[in-house]
Simulated assay, not measured.
Amino acid sequence: MTTDRETAEEPTALEVRPAAGHIGAEIGGVDLAGPLDDATVAAIRAAVLRWKVVFFRGQELDHAAHVAFARRFGEPVVLGRRGGASPADVPEVETTADRLELGGRFGMEHEEWLRRRRHTLLRGWHCDHGARVDPPAATVLRAETVPPYGGDTTWANLAAAYAGLSEPVRRFVDGLRAEHRLGVGYQARTGDDAYLRHLLDHQVASVHPLVRIHPETGERILYVNGYYVEQIAGLSRPESRAVLDMLLEQAVRPEYTVRFRWEPGSVAFWDNRATIHLAPADTTRLDAPRIMHRVMLAGDVPVGVDGSPSEPLVGTAPGRW
């Protein structure tokens, strides 16, 4: 597919190949490590907005080139805390191998730590840093080393999920708000739990609209996820749980999802405002590490259907990481 010519006289060689009916497309004909003209950047942005997540294969990016590519689409986030696997000299890059350190730091094997974060089928689904009042707008994730099988990531389109609701349910959820809190999806150990103490000492929580308006497309987004959402405001606990389960099941219906098989040099670029994703739980080969590098782009404060923005409850202020 040839892109339109928004800012250049000559068409680019960019090819956008949809991967599923509602979400996901592979983009070919571009070297992300090289200079990108404005028309190519505009075409990639348009593809991300249309397909919510786009994939590039065979890319040769180092940390600096990864950050430079991400910077064409926004301001990279610099996290205040990263693990020891992340590059010390490139603060915008976070290495997912850091996650392997967390369980050990709090007295657990990694597998137990992962099970306690995913104790139900829906708990693992999340957007990045969704408990913040200003979650990242987008994420650019690149694969360095992947296992020969397993390790796929799955994304769900929250705009399509909202559109697929019946009209009475859409009217019902349009006016609701929900509390998103760091660690609410974690199932604590019996007795002393160092990780739970860590979560309580570093709380981040916000109240977000249950339906947010996408700031670029104007779409209504069913803003739910399984890892951060604590409760729908104004509903009882049983009511909230029933409604959230219904909405999460809607969000991750197979027709609204796409699954990507990683290769070394693969890059995924997704709209964190309009998707949730599920990291793999099937990387069982200890001799085949999965090393990924992530750059996130700073986002805005979500706004609901009625024009009301999200509100911070505890944690970092907007724009401060």
Rank of each mutant, 00 (worst) to 15 (best):
R197K: 09
A161F: 12
E75T: 11
L286W: 14
P209C: 05
P91A: 07
P148Y: 08
S266V: 02
R123T: 13
E249T: 12
R50M: 08
Y162Q: 04
P148H: 13
D31M: 03
P18Q: 06
V30L: 09
P289L: 08
P318G: 09
I232P: 01
R237I: 10
R320I: 11
E15I: 06
I44R: 00
V67A: 08
G84L: 10
H208W: 02
H198V: 04
G226L: 01
L14R: 02
E10V: 09
E144C: 13
S236N: 09
R253N: 12
E112I: 04
Q187V: 04
Y195Q: 01
N272E: 11
G299L: 05
L122G: 14
V93A: 11
R177K: 07
T2H: 08
L278I: 05
A156G: 11
L244C: 11
G151I: 00
P147V: 04
Y162S: 05
A85P: 08
V67H: 02
D287S: 13
A317Y: 09
T40Y: 00
V93T: 05
L235C: 10
E26A: 14
S86Y: 05
I44H: 01
E111R: 14
V67E: 03
H110M: 12
T284Y: 15
V146S: 11
R71M: 00
H208S: 03
P264C: 00
L199G: 04
A279E: 05
R82A: 12
Q203G: 05
Y223P: 07
A288S: 07
D287C: 07
A205K: 04
A25L: 14
V314Y: 00
L100Y: 14
I213M: 11
E167W: 12
V53P: 01
A205M: 11
G83L: 04
E179V: 06
E60V: 06
D31N: 07
P87S: 09
G151R: 00
H126M: 02
H110P: 14
P215N: 13
A8D: 12
E112Y: 02
V303H: 00
R116Q: 05
T153L: 01
L49W: 12
V41T: 03
T283Q: 15
R171N: 11
